[in-house]
Amino acid sequence: MSDIKQQFESLSLEFSNDQNSLNELISARSQLETQYQENKIVLAEFENLNEDSKIYKLTGPVLLPQDFTEAKLNVTKRIEFIEGEISRVETKIADQEKKIETTRNKLLAVRAQLGQ
């Protein structure tokens, strides 16, 4: 009997741990979304500019002049990177959800045993 109880406790601990890491993943996902949107706005702004536009990049406390093509390339690269990160986090979220589901099923099974 105590064996099952112990199993139940360790499973519920695992369950809440899983849920915590899922929450962390979800907040990481929303942070990525914010960055993604911001970069997309910047890229849209670059579309309206041309080679002659003077562009500066804030590096620390100083504004450094930057080449238009270089700056645009940078932002495009960053968007690609963020897209990659988003899909990476999303697969992680899906995995974590599956994991939670299996843990939950195990937990329910053990609880049913406990109830008997």
Binding site: Q35, E38, N39, I41, V42, E45, F46, L49, S53, K54, I55, Y56, K57, L58, T59, L63, Q66, A71, V75, R78
Partner: peptide, 9 residues
């Protein structure tokens, strides 16, 4: 300021 640290004249 057009975002993510870029400034345009």
């Amino acid at each position: 300021d057009i975002g993510t640290g870029y400034y345009v004249e």
